[in-house]
């Protein structure tokens, strides 16, 4: 009997915990509420299945627990039942997968008006680069990284000369403008992760990865590294500040371009 009660308790307590616990996702700050919606759909479908199956098991244990004289029923299989269960399951799975794939399609389709923002990871800090007046990021190469060119920007590429370099780990973004985060690493794997934006992507040395989103509210958000990158992994933090247009312009005006930095010799080894 204890078994039956505890099984029921497991089902009920899990649901109550889900409903009442204070731990839930952070308030969203990007356009990816589609992702949140898909999670909700998934919670519903899986939650119903979980409760139904556990309660069914509890009922079976209650109803068919051994008593003297009880004899089990002999029934090797039932094609019909198995067919129906398979069909219903397939429908449930499709109900989760279909919206999921639609949203994934949006996730991988970067809008043409998205501004590129480059994030460069290294053990254990973040740097950022914004395209300058030409709207284009210059090319870069890990081989070109030196103490006065820590991001390895190609000095012979004119597109790179006006790029804006932000070291010190604090990036500003304008609200409601789609951005394409272009991700690079010069040493090991890292992962650019801001929980409020719901998106993340690994940064892989030797290649450029990306994802896009649109910030939908102003505020200060913490950047975490979400890919184990050595002993400093949990300390690898940064900040993204989403501004309204005016504040963003003011901030942008204070930043220095690659050329200015090279001239002033201010860029030092960031380690």
């Amino acid at each position: 009997m204890a078994v039956v009660l505890i099984l029921v308790l497991v089902a009920v307590a899990s649901v109550l915990f889900h409903l009442l616990s204070p731990w839930w996702w952070t308030p969203i700050a990007s356009n990816w509420h589609y992702i949140d919606n898909t999670i909700i759909v998934t919670f519903w479908i899986t939650g119903v299945v979980f409760v139904a199956v556990v309660l069914f098991v509890a009922y079976c244990v209650y109803r068919f627990r051994h008593r003297p004289g009880l004899k089990a029923h002999y029934e090797p299989e039932s094609r019909k039942l198995e067919f129906w269960l398979a069909t219903v399951t397939a429908i449930g799975v499709a109900a989760m997968l279909t919206p999921g794939l639609f949203v994934w399609h949006q996730f991988v389709t970067v809008p043409s008006d998205a501004t590129e923002v480059e994030v460069v990871g290294q053990q254990w800090l973040w740097s950022f680069r914004l395209p300058g007046a030409d709207g284009k990021l210059g090319t870069s190469e890990t081989r070109d990284v030196t103490s006065d060119n820590p991001l390895g920007i190609n000095k012979n590429d004119p597109a790179g000369l006006d790029d804006i370099i932000i070291s010190g780990g604090e990036l500003h973004l304008p609200m409601d403008k789609p951005v394409k985060m272009v991700l690079r690493s010069i040493d090991v794997l890292h992962d650019f992760y801001v929980p409020e934006f719901r998106a993340k992507m690994d940064m892989v040395p030797g290649m450029v990865t990306y994802f896009w989103f649109t910030p939908t509210r102003t505020g200060t958000f913490e950047v975490l590294c979400a890919e184990l990158c050595g002993v400093g992994h949990p300390q690898m933090r940064g900040t993204v500040i989403v501004d309204n247009d005016e504040d963003y312009k003011t901030w942008l005006g204070q930043q220095q371009t690659f050329t200015q930095l090279m001239a002033s010799g201010e860029t030092k080894t960031v380690n």
Partner: peptide
């Protein structure tokens, strides 16, 4: 479900 994995992975 790939897109749900993005925030959770």
């Amino acid at each position: 479900n790939v897109v749900v994995d993005v925030p959770l992975s």
